[in-house]
Amino acid sequence: MHRVVIFGNSGSGKSTLAMARSASLGCPLLDLDTIAWEAGAETPTRRSPEASRSAIHDFVHSAESWVIEGCYADLLELAIPHATEIVFLNPGTKTCIENARQRPWEPHKYASPAAQDANLAMLIAWIRDYEQRVDEFSYTAHRRLFDGFQRRKRELQSNARQTG
């Protein structure tokens, strides 16, 4: 049984590592973006806490092994008690910004590559503020999750070795 939770700043490589781990383990993957936001909303709108909690509950009980990735500490807190391992991706702001600039189109988040590109300046500003913020998306929240976990955990400060 492998239940892996991967988290970190936007652009840290969460999706890349999560897809590789999910493939190597042959298990389902949950990207928290897919349950944190209302699908098809004109403007980004967070789903109700109850809907997100229910989706996480259903996912963690749906399979013996799984991988969850995201940056939402409030949602990660619901999954972590079920995890056998956590991975905190913390490669630094410069790497996260470069990754954001190079990321391929994410059709589950944006209607078109142009829409994604139009959001890039805001995303880079968001990434830069990671260590100063104190919300559920912040370094402080992620550090608290990592430090409090008592089972297998890894903090990766480089994207160089992000494989299964």
Rank of each mutant, 00 (worst) to 15 (best):
R152E: 11
V5Y: 01
D33N: 09
F146V: 00
R151I: 06
W126V: 01
Y72R: 05
P44R: 13
E42A: 15
M19F: 08
R101F: 06
A160V: 09
V60W: 01
S65F: 04
E106C: 07
P113Y: 07
P104W: 02
V4D: 04
E106S: 12
H108G: 13
P113F: 00
G11S: 00
T34L: 13
I127Y: 00
Y130I: 03
G40R: 13
I86N: 01
I35A: 08
M1I: 06
T140H: 12
L76W: 05
G148R: 11
T95G: 00
L29I: 12
D33V: 05
E42F: 07
E64L: 11
G8L: 03
A63Y: 01
D117F: 10
H61M: 09
L75F: 13
A36T: 10
P49I: 09
R21D: 06
W37Q: 03
P107F: 05
E64Q: 14
A118E: 09
G13K: 07
E131L: 10
A111I: 03
Q150P: 07
A160H: 05
Y139W: 10
A36H: 13
L17F: 03
R154N: 08
N119E: 13
H2T: 15
D33G: 08
I127V: 12
G40K: 12
R161L: 11
W37G: 02
F149M: 07
Q116W: 01
L17Y: 01
F7Y: 03
G148Y: 10
C71T: 03
R3F: 09
C27Y: 01
M122E: 12
F137T: 10
E85V: 00
L76I: 10
S12Y: 06
R143L: 11
S52C: 12
W126F: 10
H61Y: 09
I80A: 08
A100T: 05
V67K: 07
E69D: 13
L145P: 08
S12N: 11
Q102S: 10
F59W: 05
E98T: 02
E42Y: 04
Y72T: 02
P107E: 13
S22L: 06
A73K: 04
I56A: 09
M19K: 15
R151Q: 14
W126Y: 03
E50G: 10
T34R: 15
A160W: 00
A63C: 02
A83T: 12
E38K: 12
R46K: 15
T163A: 14
L30T: 02
A125I: 06
S24Q: 15
E98N: 04
R161I: 06
R128T: 14
A41V: 12
C27N: 04
L89K: 01
R21I: 11
E50Q: 14
I127Q: 01
Y139H: 10
M1L: 09
P113R: 09
T84R: 11
S10C: 08
P91L: 13
H57V: 03
A118I: 07
T16W: 05
S62A: 15
S54D: 15
D129K: 14
